[in-house]
């Protein structure tokens, strides 16, 4: 197998690595970078569990090779929250808070893909209708929820982007 040098910006960090030609991006993120929040469900590009953002667009990291991401910006679920430099606490994005508050998940396996697809949707359409949400998420399968609370969570996230005091969440420890 051929090996290739790649340079990929992952969650704002510049990564230089050598990968084999056949390593897909999901394996690279999970195995080489230990970013295990990206999940692998089908490895043929249908279920959407492995969705990450490449240059702000949702893509399936199981059918993109790591070498194809060379020179691009990748965002995974680990990049959605950040440490507040003043308080030292990890702060969730509004989308994450809304999925928590709205119980837009059960087992959590499809969740990272749902969150990132939602991020791309709300960036493009800050105030989507139910139908627009369903269309945007139609490539992300969830076997647990039946989607109702996911759609509600996305709507809540859109509202929170305008008014972030909407949710009650347990105080972080």
């Amino acid at each position: 197998m051929s090996n290739h040098k790649v340079q990929i910006e992952v969650n704002g960090k510049n990564i230089e690595a050598e990968v084999s030609g056949r390593t897909h991006l999901a394996d690279f993120l999970r195995n080489n970078l230990n970013l295990t929040g990206t999940h692998i469900g089908c490895e043929h590009g249908v279920c959407g569990c492995c969705t990450v953002l490449m240059d702000e667009e949702p893509i399936r990291s199981c059918i993109i090779l790591a070498v194809q991401a060379d020179g691009h910006k990748i965002k995974t679920v680990e990049g959605m929250s950040e440490i507040n430099q003043e308080t030292g606490k990890r702060e969730l994005s509004n989308i994450q808070k809304a999925f928590w508050e709205g119980h837009g998940l059960q087992c959590g396996f499809c969740t990272p893909g749902m969150l990132l697809t939602t991020e791309a949707l709300l960036a493009e359409n800050p105030d989507p209708t139910d139908q627009e949400i369903r269309e945007a998420l139609s490539g992300n399968i969830c076997r647990c929820t039946g989607y109702l609370q996911i759609v509600e969570a996305v709507k809540l996230a859109a509202k929170m982007n305008k008014n972030s005091t909407l949710v009650y969440l347990p105080e972080e420890v």
Binding site: I40, V77, W100, H103, T111, Y168, L169
Partner: peptide, 19 residues
């Protein structure tokens, strides 16, 4: 009252066997 498990799942820090 939002389920307590949701925190780790929205963080992407659930620990599945392949992790």
């Amino acid at each position: 009252n939002p389920p307590v498990e949701n925190h780790r799942f929205v963080l992407g820090s659930g620990t599945y066997v392949d992790d």
